[in-house]
Simulated assay, not measured.
Amino acid sequence: MSTDEDTPRQAYAGVPFADRKNARRERLLDAALNLLDAEGFAAVTVRRVCKEAGLNNRYFYENFTDGEALLDALVDRLEQELALNTAAMMATKPIAAVDQAIEILVAAFVDDPRLLRILHSPADPTIARRRNELLLRSVAAVRPYLEVAAAEFGNPDQRMVETAGYMLIGGWSDTLWAYAEGKLGIERAELVEQLARMFSGIARTLAIPGEPGID
């Protein structure tokens, strides 16, 4: 008599193989997150993740080639959740000012700080690569906002805009991580106000003296 172990690509108990495989993948990702939260990166081994998920090792390799692939998938899932949460907040509170945009940014990262914690964990090649990729995407995303804000004071210096983008995103990432970890003794509203003031101050410095802003 065939079993789930014998016929992995057939429906089992009415559940298609693809659905069962996806469910196992999610269990493995959940297990990895639990281990990261409780014990850190050292605990995220194939054996420990499978034990936490209650699955045989072969199901790990059914979904991931190795531990690096698992970490990649974990960051992917957290980034997708962050994007969905941010989109939901923007839908209910359209951005009309810098402080509102920063309020949404703070809420998205601080309400679920797991991505921040992973990206600020001790150096791991996969995590370091993913942090750099996120930095590049974030700098590209913030650049047009910096240009618009700077144009209120004069013509933006494009070379400084690029530098300011890296400084802002790198600084915001570290600041939000510090706040989420309880290292800043301020309320969220004050954090938002401070970040908005810093953004405006940096935008002002990007304007080339004596040159008119963009109409």
Rank of each mutant, 00 (worst) to 15 (best):
E133M: 09
A107L: 11
F60Q: 03
L74Q: 06
I169S: 05
M198S: 12
L191R: 02
R48S: 15
A88Q: 11
M90Q: 14
D124A: 12
G182K: 05
A108V: 02
L184K: 01
A43Q: 05
N57A: 13
L168P: 05
R204H: 13
A140C: 03
M90K: 12
A96Q: 11
A31F: 00
V44Y: 07
P125R: 06
A207Y: 05
V75R: 01
R77E: 14
Y145H: 14
F153S: 14
F60E: 13
V44F: 03
L84W: 00
G210P: 09
L115Y: 01
D19W: 03
D124F: 04
F17T: 07
T205H: 07
L82R: 13
D99E: 14
G165I: 09
A149R: 02
G165A: 03
A96T: 14
A180W: 02
V98A: 15
A140F: 00
T86S: 13
R48Y: 01
E162H: 11
A178Q: 14
E52R: 10
A101R: 12
G14D: 07
D19T: 13
A178L: 04
N34W: 04
A203H: 08
Q194V: 10
E190P: 01
A180T: 02
R159V: 07
Q158N: 05
N132K: 12
E152A: 15
R188Q: 14
T86W: 06
D157W: 04
E190H: 07
A53M: 06
K21W: 00
I102T: 09
E79I: 04
P16N: 09
P16G: 10
T126G: 15
V106M: 09
R114E: 11
L115V: 09
L195S: 11
A96R: 10
R129G: 07
I118C: 01
I127L: 15
P209D: 13
R77V: 03
E103W: 04
I104R: 00
L146C: 10
L70I: 03
D37F: 00
K183M: 07
E62F: 05
R27D: 12
S2R: 10
W177F: 13
A83R: 10
I127S: 05
A149T: 04
R137W: 00
V148F: 07
A88W: 00
R9G: 01
L28I: 01
D66S: 08
Y179T: 06
R27A: 14
V15Q: 11
T86V: 08
L36S: 03
R47V: 14
R137F: 03
I127C: 02
L176T: 05
L33E: 15
N155K: 08
A128T: 14
Y179R: 07
A123R: 10
A164S: 13
A88V: 06
F17C: 12
A23C: 02
L195R: 04
G170C: 10
D4F: 03
I202H: 02
Q158L: 13
R197T: 12
L115T: 08
V106P: 07
D112P: 00
T126A: 13
K93I: 03
L195K: 09
R204S: 13
Q194I: 10
K183V: 06
E190R: 10
I214Q: 09
D4W: 05
R20S: 07
F109E: 11
A203P: 11
E5N: 07
